[in-house]
């Protein structure tokens, strides 16, 4: 039990950034846009969040700064992709490369500085429940927020009119345009939301997961988040399950290495990615499921004139 609870706690902290980034990307993709710049937006969110907390001391402002940084970077993507009809794949990749470079530049003087981490919000009474209390009711605001986010997004997509419109735009932009919805405007906000969430994911890394700034600290989590969206077949609660599964695997491989299990650490590090590929193969066997949930227009540019 002494080992179990800390392990589970680290799984939660490992899953949270994946959850934010994947939920944001899921909304972007549901609107029919593929943004491969998640990694770059995460890094910019991480550096801006850390810089803000370092210079102002305010965690609230730092979280806000992370969100704004991610959203701000996504505006560049939105303008290029929606306004100039550039290729979504190429622009997204460029955004990641740009984000890596820009965050390294901004964070030059922040390397090596430590921060205490986001304060834990312990919920009285509930915290006293044995085992479950320490596990579930003593986290920072972003962990609670991530669960709330999944619930809100699930409700938004399936039970509100704007959610329906968002899905419709991703399913057939021509039909949505013919009915009279502003495809580009809806996509713009979806991209903005995705960027903001990626920024939050980055801020969580530099404020809570390992409260410091180092170059390229997201270490591929943006790509895992992208895979998670497909893994979850674009459904919010499955994103949650997937994020915890991936968080779990990445933590377990660390523990396995620590215990000296005779498997090369490189193989263990591969696990999350192998799991992604295996699951992708499995879900693509069911064509109807893909058809129902995958946004049919993903990656296709929309010309409002025709």
């Amino acid at each position: 039990m002494d080992i179990l609870i800390p392990t589970l706690l680290t799984i939660i902290t490992a899953a949270t950034p994946l959850l934010y980034a994947a939920i944001g990307e899921m909304i972007t993709e549901k609107a029919g846009v593929l943004n491969l710049g998640v990694e770059g937006m995460m890094l910019l969110g991480a550096v801006c969040g850390f810089a803000t907390v370092h210079f102002t001391g305010s965690a609230t402002l730092a979280i806000l700064a992370g969100f704004l940084a991610g959203a701000g970077l996504s505006i560049i993507f939105a303008v290029l992709v929606l306004g100039f009809q550039s290729s979504q794949v190429a622009t997204g990749l460029a955004l990641t490369i740009f984000g890596i470079g820009l965050s390294a530049l901004l964070g030059q003087n922040l390397v090596g500085i430590a921060y205490d981490g986001l304060p834990k919000l312990t919920i009285p009474l509930l915290y006293d429940i044995p085992v479950l209390g320490p596990l579930l009711f003593s986290h920072d605001i972003l962990v609670y927020g991530s669960i709330l986010l999944v619930a809100t997004v699930a409700w938004f997509l399936n039970h509100t009119r704007p959610g329906l419109i968002l899905r419709a735009v991703g399913n057939s932009h021509d039909a949505a345009h013919a009915i009279g919805y502003h495809v580009l405007r809806i996509r713009f906000f979806a991209i903005l939301f995705g960027g903001g969430m990626a920024g939050l994911a980055g801020a969580y890394l530099s404020l809570a997961y390992s409260p410091l700034w180092i170059e390229n600290m997201s270490a591929g989590r943006g790509w895992i988040a992208l895979a998670l969206v497909v893994f979850a077949t674009w459904r919010p609660w499955r994103v949650l399950i997937g994020a915890y599964l991936f968080g779990g695997i990445s933590i377990l491989q660390l523990h396995a290495q620590a215990l000296g299990i005779g498997v090369p650490s490189q193989v263990m590090s591969m696990l999350p990615y192998i799991a992604t590929i295996a699951v992708l193969v499995m879900i693509s066997r069911d064509r109807n499921k893909i058809r129902l949930n995958a946004p049919a227009c993903i990656g296709k540019p929309f010309h409002p004139t025709s």
Binding site: R161, L164, R167, A168, N171, S172, D174, A175, A176, A178, I179, R291, L292, N293, A294, A296
Partner: peptide, 13 residues
């Protein structure tokens, strides 16, 4: 102007 992956009802809405 229909959305394949949505239901008839959602399309009408």
């Amino acid at each position: 102007s229909l959305f394949d992956s949505l239901t008839v009802f959602e399309n009408i809405v």
